[in-house]
Design a protein around this nucleic acid. Sequence first.
DNA 1: TTGTATGCGTTATCAT
DNA 2: ATGATAACGCATACAA
Lengths: 329, 329
Amino acid sequence: MKATILDVAELAKVSKATVSRVINNKNNVSGEVRERVIQAIKELGFRPSGIARSLVHRKTKSLGLILPDITNPFFPALARGVEDAAHRYGYTVFLCSTDNEPEIERGYIDKLEEQQVEGIVLISSDKQLTHELQNMSIPFVLCDRWSNSSPIDIVTVDHYRGAYEAVEYLLNLGHQFIAHIAGPPNVQSAEKRKMGYTDAIIKAGLEPFVRHGSFSYESGYQVMASLLQEGHPTAVFAANDLMALGAIQAIEDAGLSVPRDIAIFGCDDIFVAQISKPPLSTIMQPAYQMGVCALEMLHERIEGLREEPKKIILEHRLVIRHSCGGGLK
Amino acid sequence: MKATILDVAELAKVSKATVSRVINNKNNVSGEVRERVIQAIKELGFRPSGIARSLVHRKTKSLGLILPDITNPFFPALARGVEDAAHRYGYTVFLCSTDNEPEIERGYIDKLEEQQVEGIVLISSDKQLTHELQNMSIPFVLCDRWSNSSPIDIVTVDHYRGAYEAVEYLLNLGHQFIAHIAGPPNVQSAEKRKMGYTDAIIKAGLEPFVRHGSFSYESGYQVMASLLQEGHPTAVFAANDLMALGAIQAIEDAGLSVPRDIAIFGCDDIFVAQISKPPLSTIMQPAYQMGVCALEMLHERIEGLREEPKKIILEHRLVIRHSCGGGLK
DNA sequence: TTGTATGCGTTATCAT
DNA sequence: ATGATAACGCATACAA
């Protein structure tokens, strides 16, 4: 059985209080006694119980990170960002992949609350959920999503604007038939991108042409394949890089070429984008920075350093490579 | 302030014990009282404190996952494997990226012990560390690494054998000058692969030719670039896919072609391997399965269902694509 | 400087 | 069926 503070106290022939003092580096303990206690601690391999401490202090020094899927190439960088920042503040973080399923999201939030995490970084599109979270009065920051209705902490990127600019770029290249491979309808960032696309297209006096995928490589492939049957877009804007990559493959399998026959624009700038052939033009999202930023805001909130909700929009950037012609080969 | 069991008790005009009974679904409480309590719970938004429970039960229902870097494409799948399995058992898991730095590894282990995790999935090459962990008598399973010295739980893959077979394959293709881009010298899996490479080369009566990278795409690029100066290998076996991809780029930037001029063989079979141009021949490692398996073993150990240490070697598989000629285009 | 006693939010053992 | 009370392992206010 693990040694407790009492075991140490008895071995060192002092009271629990004294032991507590030395493990917390209080200065009011004589050198001689301190030595005895330290010795006893070593002897027993004693380690103070974090949960007992948590119970006293009402602090667990733990956080939750709720995201759709750590296996999606966009999230590891974000996760690392929150992890690194959390580590700096002495927190340790629970990883929770939800596959965007509200039920699983709720389940994890329940678990996290039970674990008494001090805060949560949430990447979810479920409005309902953020409301519940607000009522639970557990500090949290919404990440990569946007809500103008609720006064909550948010760090994100302007998905709408990014998509709009990407389409503008395609338009300037002279494209007249630009299709969009959208993400799942229930994912907010995907919807924003779709709106950006639609508005840019309409403003140019053209007709929107949207098909939905599921953010996966395979779905990108399939949607593109059927797109090829339905019409002849000269350019395609995909809601994320994975689908863009799948689309490229579908195009090549159909005997066509990117960018010669069809231009492809992605979104996220995951690592693969730069090494794909052709290199993918895309919208860079500062994932790592977003994670760090989310955690910084969460920390402020936990420590009560800030009362008013804060919204931070990180800068995106069009990264022009070769999948739309021009750019880097 | 959050409501406690006592608040509920007072509001429902019963004792703490009774409240405890209803939240734990004990059957020995009258319907009428149960209703009152449930009502009070709802009214106060009461949620039992997990840490208080943990203190009583000496169980936290939390685990730790210590790995080099969640940002390395090999690990997300593994992480998801442990996460999914953990979730099934009701555990929630802490994510800890260490960059293979022993100091950080130790720091995290410390933190995890303090958090009273019930077990740890460890991916580390530091022998010392596994020894310390053994002495701490906290259940853990070593993942993706091998130790024949200590009687501990291990789930891994035969890195040596995989490398050996990959080189054999290259040999059978007729290559006489096969170089190896190894991983960091302090990473055990990398060392095993190097040994597999070396033994296969020597057995064929050839000369080993090894240069070390750091598992990153950039390092693969640089090592390959300088390799091109030093000699003229007709084939290269890289210790992971990221470096293999970097190597391909270096070769092409030098005006040569893969696989025409130089064949490239990778390791891991990360997602990008199949969509790279040319598609990368590589050694498939069952990352997700490894994660699940690790967690299953950990669970057995935690529940005391098993005493003797267990070693599981998961099956690897050569995936032949086009980067060595032949295979899938 | 050191010890005693109490509380942190639960569960569990006894009574009643 | 219900309540009083002692743990669980630690920190801290108060005494000494």
